[in-house]
């Protein structure tokens, strides 16, 4: 095993351990010691609005594939979808979901059905769709436009993998004066989201959806683990930089270099 491989395994084990540790330690999931993120507050708020208004929330899960790193943002989007469905189960009209990737579409439908069943929305007609609206980035955006307009959508939540086609989705929301909560892992799309979405999720905030929407202990533990690891990274960087200035070649670099 190479140094990189070993370091990689250490990272995974460390993450796993931290997550388990925090999920055991944090016995009260209700107690959220996490900074407020406006976009998630907004989601909660919009769920209430949808309930009172008899409108729908629209969640689009992006077009990211499942077999690459993009999958994570779609998976994070799915856990947000799950929470939103659970929370908006009192809506007359359950949320509508749209995706631009077939696998994500299947997963969205499974999530919807699983969640709906868990909360006993037996009426299938009311079930949110989770449909695949388009298979290329812009056809997905165009299909989602239709979803935004044709349904009685009171808020749009775009969480998943998007490219610059997100512009269409965020501005469509803006045109209809419906709040748009959006987050993605693709950097240029993030920039667009920041400028055009009413409530942007920046960077890794996207992955914290489960924790902020009450998906359970393990999600809170996840972001605690992320915080711990964040500081590890910071110390590794600062330490290495310091050593580098001092002219010392260090172990860290060798451990990571294999992958560069």
């Amino acid at each position: 095993m190479s140094a990189t491989g070993f370091t990689g395994i250490v990272v995974i084990v460390l993450f796993l351990g931290l997550m388990i540790f925090f999920s055991i330690i944090n016995q009260e999931p209700k107690q959220k010691n996490i900074r407020p993120i406006q976009a998630y507050n907004k989601i909660n708020q919009e769920i209430n609005v949808a309930v009172e208004d008899g409108t729908q929330l629209h969640i689009s899960l992006g077009r990211g594939g499942i077999t690459g790193p993009e999958s994570a943002s779609a998976l994070a989007g799915l856990s947000i979808l799950k929470q939103v469905i659970e929370k908006s189960s009192v809506c007359d009209y359950p949320p509508v979901a749209s995706t631009g990737n077939a696998v994500i579409s299947i997963l969205a439908q499974d999530t919807i059905q699983g969640t709906s069943k868990a909360i006993s929305i037996a009426d299938k007609g009311k079930n949110p769709s989770g449909e695949l609206v388009g298979v290329t980035p812009f056809s997905y955006a165009a299909g989602t436009l239709t979803t935004i307009r044709d349904n009685n959508v009171s808020a749009n939540i775009h969480t998943g993998w998007f490219g610059s086609e997100i512009t269409w989705l965020t501005t469509a929301g803006e045109r209809q004066s419906t709040p748009t909560i959006a987050g993605t892992a693709q950097l240029p799309a993030q920039a667009v989201i920041y400028a055009s979405a009413s409530d942007p999720l920046i960077g890794e905030e996207l992955y914290a959806g489960g924790a902020y929407l009450g998906a359970g202990k393990i999600h809170l533990a996840s972001i605690s683990a992320q915080d711990v690891f964040r500081w590890i990274i910071i110390f590794v960087i600062l330490g290495s930089v310091l050593l580098k200035i001092l002219g010392i070649d260090i172990f860290v670099e060798n451990s990571l270099a294999g992958s560069m």
């Binding site: 107690q31 959220k32 996490i34 900074r35 905030e205 972001i223 605690s224 915080d227 964040r230 910071i234």
Partner: peptide
């Protein structure tokens, strides 16, 4: 930027 994303907070 990394620190910006720090989630932990005191309630």
């Amino acid at each position: 930027t990394l620190i910006y994303f720090h989630f932990g907070a005191r309630e």
